[in-house]
Design a protein around this nucleic acid. Sequence first.
RNA 1: GGGCCGUUAGCUCAGCCUGGUUAGAGCACCUGCCUUUUAAGCAGGGUGUCGCUGGUUCGAGUCCAGCACGGCCCA
Length: 505
Amino acid sequence: MSEEQSQDSSDLFEQRRLKLERLREKGIDPYPLRAECTHSTAEAIRMLEEWKEKGGEDGPPEVVKLCGRMMSVRVMGKASFAHIADGSGRFQTYVRLADEGVDAETYELFKRDLDIGDIIQVEGTLFFTRTGEPSLRVTKLTLLAKSLRPLPEKWHGLKDVETRYRQRYVDLIVNEDARRVFVTRSHIVAALRRFMDSRGFIEVETPVLQPIYGGAMARPFTTYYHALDQEVFLRIADELYLKRLIVGGLDRVYEICKDFRNEGVSSHHNPEFTQLEVYQAYADYHDMMSLAEDAFSHVAEVVLGTVRVSYQGHELDLTPPWRRLPMRDGILEETGIDIYQAPTVELLRQRVEDQGLDVDPQPTRGSLVDEIFSEYVEPKLIQPTFITDFPLEISPLAKKKPDNPDLVERFELFIGGLELGNAFSELNDPVDQRERFMEQGRQREAGDDEAHPMDEDYVRALEFGMPPTGGMGWGIDRMVMLFTDQSSIREVILFPHLRTKGAPS
RNA sequence: GGGCCGUUAGCUCAGCCUGGUUAGAGCACCUGCCUUUUAAGCAGGGUGUCGCUGGUUCGAGUCCAGCACGGCCCA
């Protein structure tokens, strides 16, 4: 009965359900409690190759147990090959009828009731096939978990971007490149933590839910804290909390965490993203440049084994020191406009028009400078570059330059055309800070939704005295893009946010 | 928010421009053969809500409109 259904059934899912029932009828638990693995597949390959180097015949006599997901099957009459995959790689298994432990019933089970995608445990001895592939001669076969859904095609894999993101588990099963990106991401973050720790920084955790957001210019997500009967914001940055810790005497702190900005999604922006922020007392933005150079080149060396990174067809050299380019010089080079000769927004608008530049209208001189820069200079910044000397009005948390109070001690870091990071000599004058917040309030009145809100408690902290401090933040997602040569941020985020669709089938 | 493109079998894709038998291919799957294969091979089998809703038409996967989701570009 079930055999006929199996033959007739058009539904692959239903076919596998029938196999599941058949297994249960045979007294086989398709989801047993425990597995036993003596080696990973990578370890098995190493073991076999060492045996061969020592001049051993066939393979080592010891019995090994390997576990993994069946990724391919080749049945040839009374002998069959299958590849299993675990976290370390792939390995070929060989099942032959009438071999030790393989009676007709076992072989039939392998042929009829197992499918690509099933998770199995195989026990046996290692050997090389005629073609030299490391393999396991199976003497015992155990099903660890039956798979009810067919995997994507073995050759083309899963390409549909939407399905890859919505069902990342399938992407990770079949696309080795996807797996590689996320393993590399983990290595990058681990190497970064070790680097920061080695420099005497301590890792801290600050609030995700904040009564006042700050530390960046962005729109926040809002939510509601019922116990306190209060609206709260998901953090757009950790900056103001970390600097409170500097005030408190934790001289070197960093945090690697998710920040949230309620803004557009693009190939370089995800509303929920991971940032590193680091603050160092008795330091300034020059020290942050050195720290960035050291951190990037160190992590590249550890993770990639080189400081030369290939990104989207460009060869990037992360060897310190990196280029320092004042924003004014960058804009002058690319547009012919000297922003120092245009001290008001009206004059700058006039210069933009004279040069025939195509930029969106901006409410303030600072934001217009920023816009010109983004449009004409940013895409040219391929090799690592610190852009320095930012306009005061878009930098409410940075110290003024002593020789030019319209500018601040701030840099942004660009590599491969990506904006990677942002750093200041942190403003520690509480009176100046209060005035800057007031000015931001006026910009908000003038229509700038991203203006920085007033934070009285933060000003109070500064009033207790904050040492001269260098601070920096950088995007971990973009760093991973750079190190894994990905052009879309969604390729380095495991579960990028997509609009909800109907219930998955 | 705007423009362009996409959505067909479990997966990867043809078919649409120029409407017309029962919607195709490869892989996967099912049946049979095959004892070192590896994109195994040989023989047979098509398993489908052509994204959704409506319209035009004698007739729509194909043309039109709206909607949904996604991608790229712009904002």
